[in-house]
Design a protein around this nucleic acid. Structure first.
Lengths: 124, 124
DNA sequence: CGGCATCCACATGGATACTG
DNA sequence: CAGTATCCATGTGGATGCCG
């Protein structure tokens, strides 16, 4: 399972990132943000900055309250975003990225770039 | 919804990637690979090169046949991977990345890097 | 070896309504 | 404004078995 580096026929130029490791960073990252809406939410927070709930709802292409709520919970649990009540009455909440969340920028950016370059020609 | 660029308080250094656009590349990319196993599968194909089904199954941390099969179908539909029968009897199938799939390398790599840097200190 | 079929539990997601 | 509650349809995932 681990000693397969010699069989990299044809892609030797590719650095073998985690061969022989017990856990895989890609797997773990995918577990955290490998959901349909998570990257989008992070992206919106990166792009528009700290946002309120409905503001986020508007910006994330027609996500429902429930799904957004669930996703935000999930992201907060994983310490990627911050939930802050900035006003009690009327209730005003602000979601922002934690340092952790902000550090995802390269990932999101890579996704964005890839999307721009490679998706239009698939169409559907 | 679109004229919010002036409210980017504090993150002006961030290029606004797709403000005002109808569709969002991040969303579309997330739709394609925003699943728990998809990035991992792509990663394994990047790392180990073309692989057979069970080989892939071994390398993707204990994924079940069904889920792997479904995922491969999905990825193939989206033209990210290639399914090639290289032997009829005994059956020998090889999955490899298409050009499209290979172009995901920066995305996967970004995920890998992020995982390495930021996950160990969350622990759980 | 490379799957697909089946069964079944559970998660996810949308719609709608309602609250403080 | 910021959600939660509820209902319900569909999706997803694991286990197991079987087949060429």
């Amino acid at each position: 399972m681990t000693d397969r580096t010699e069989s990299n026929d044809g892609i030797e130029q590719l650095e073998v990132w985690c061969a022989g490791e017990e856990w895989c960073p890609v797997t773990t990252t995918a577990t955290l943000i490998g959901k349909k809406w998570h990257p989008v939410i992070v992206h919106r927070l990166l792009e528009y900055g700290p946002s309120g709930f409905n503001e986020l709802k508007e910006n994330v292409d027609g996500i429902s309250s429930k799904v957004l709520s669930d996703s935000l919970d999930d992201l907060e649990e994983n310490q990627l975003i911050n939930r802050e009540i900035i006003n009690e009455k009327p209730v005003r909440v602000q979601y922002s990225l934690t340092t952790h969340g902000q550090s995802l920028e390269p990932v999101i950016y890579a996704m964005h770039e890839w999307g721009q370059e490679h998706i239009t020609n698939i169409s559907d």
